[in-house]
Design a protein around this nucleic acid. Structure first.
Lengths: 207, 207, 207, 207
DNA sequence: CATGAATGAGCATTCATTCAT
DNA sequence: GATGAATGAATGCTCATTCAT
């Protein structure tokens, strides 16, 4: 491999390794993942990995960090600047299928589930930095909707959880079943259905 | 360990090992699980494991089989002999929290997610024997509810998925977050909320 | 298995185990031989082996002893009471093919060769009790033949070795090659040829 | 151990391991041989063995191949370009003691005998590539000697076998008895005697 | 006496990590 | 910076031996 002399070149090399690592960790889990394979996937030698990451575990932690954090911030901002519950819900219904199918989020989720016990600290941080923040943003959105009279519910927190449950469901599904299977879940239709049920379920009762 | 000379005693020993194995596989995933640990958890020596199971993989497969199959049959029968959508839904709302908290299903699910790529055949069978059968039973229940005029929907299949999504959500949650955390999710409240939203969302429109 | 209460019954049981053990040791060598297999071949349980033999090694040593010693005594007497070199040679040429094909001698030889380093004491004893005694008897027979004027040689010891070499050769051959092969060596013809060559090679020169 | 970066250095390392492996397999047989010991004998770590050979069995097979094949070709050429039966016989009588004492052939033979049943394919190949070719070359040499009128026999094949029998005999002897014993067989004298007996035994009868 | 379930030391193999080149 | 040969701790599995039944 060519030498990476500039800082930019080094960052690129880091990215390659992180990308390769995510794929390997995703496919095999932390302990079955082989540094050899990661090196091959990244197109570098095994020794090079250790120039960029102190250990297998450090690489793992960096991958989680690199992939998870940016995603939340995006979602958070989307919901905070919401211009009304229904329009945001509508937007979410269109964005979430993409998040599930095209981002690395389901991969990271799969990895974290599989190795949850080996990395309690990572799980805890992920919970705080990703789950809690997402859940809080969603809860606020629900509460705002109530206050605005758009919707009604007594239990904003659980509504937020139930809104997100199909995301988890479909993320797991795509990651666990689809790689070994032909039929893909129709996420568009699923989230369409979800949206409609939510709209009806949360509709304020006519007086 | 005492000798297991009778068939019954041997079955008991098998159960012990399966139980110990599930815990170990659950906590560490297949490849990090150590036969030594399983033996210690089961209170037997390493060699004894191999009297009952041909290999680590065979033990793994037997555990999945032993734990997964019986559960489905229970669920299936519950839904098939349903005496009306709402009463069954009510029953499910009460049973599912127990299933999530007290059965081994979430453990098995966690293990299968983590090692999905290593055991595609198991995943495929699990999908067919557990997921598909559960989904079919639920879909039928929804359709019957429509035909009986209790509920209305155009998309019974996705409704079935959305009904089950919170089970997946909470199974993952309990298994991933709760072991490292103090606050437990209030499943009673969550499924209560889920039930109410479903009832409203599926209520046939007044003319 | 039935109990062996009488001494005779116990001896029979011993014989069965020795026979089974020889076959197993012959086929796999000492260290690959499994006590389990020996037990199965003998039609007894594993524990029973230890009622008759203190350990795998003790069983091995007893087998060698049981099989090797009687054989030599037979050969020895055959040669000592020889009534002339040529008539004894003739008898040997007829007996040796049988020894190679039908006795356990080649099996024992194969086992000893394979495990020579693991059991130097056994090898040494075998050399003294079997090889040396056989070699001495043969050497004496050659010397008597010389003294009687039947044959002539300056090097009785090496002649004795060369007389026995084809026995070793064919024992190894039958044991190593024939089990995995269709064509069997024609020992009759081989020893016939050997006899004729010896007769010519040892014939006293005409003056 | 120093790094073997060049191809030549790697070949050397391979040679070291093969040499160490032959000694270990020779002394203990395949199944008792320990990879640990081979590594120590070769002056490398256990892991290094697996950089050069895929498994214990692969190492074993490579050793047999590496050691056996070249030897035959040497012998074969020696006999084919023979300039007369007696002169070749004379040469053989001088070369064979060296082959027995100084080459690895007896070691390989000992190993193959001990593990014949575990590696039937190796034994079969060895028979074809080494034994049969050697036997054929020798038989041709005998036949040519007959045609040239130098010698006479009706049974060239068995004569060839009887010519080689003392090689087997002394190979086994040196390998089985001498390591645990003080007196060494005088191979010079033995083959000298063998040669003289052969010359006399095969001499065409005077009319 | 006979059995076979239980044991645990022993060994082949893997793989994260190091470091000479 | 980059490489990949070398290392050795870790782990699945085997099998001689024991001993409760």
């Amino acid at each position: 491999m060519k030498r990476a002399n500039s800082e930019a070149a080094k960052d690129l090399r880091r990215e390659q390794i992180i990308h390769a690592g995510l794929d390997e960790f995703f496919e095999r889990g932390f302990s079955s993942a082989k540094m050899d394979n990661i090196a091959r996937r990244a197109g570098v030698s095994k020794g090079t990995l250790y120039l960029y990451f102190a250990s297998k575990e450090a690489l793992f932690l960096d991958i989680i960090k690199a992939v998870a954090i940016p995603r939340v911030e995006m979602m958070e901002s989307m919901m905070v600047q919401s211009s009304g519950f229904f329009s945001t819900l509508n937007m979410l219904s269109q964005q979430l299928p993409l998040l599930v199918r095209q981002s690395s989020v389901p991969k990271v989720a799969k990895v974290l589930i599989g190795d949850a016990f080996a990395f309690p600290a990572v799980v805890r941080e992920y919970r705080q930095q990703v789950i809690e923040r997402g859940h809080r943003a969603l809860t606020i959105m629900v509460r705002k909707g109530c206050e605005a009279g758009e919707i009604h519910t007594e239990d904003a927190e659980n509504v937020a959880r139930l809104m997100i449950a199909p995301v988890i469901f479909s993320a797991i599904w795509t990651v666990v079943f689809e790689p070994h299977d032909d039929e893909a879940l129709d996420l568009q239709a699923l989230f369409q259905c979800h949206q409609q049920m939510l709209m009806k379920a949360l509709r304020p009762e006519a007086p």
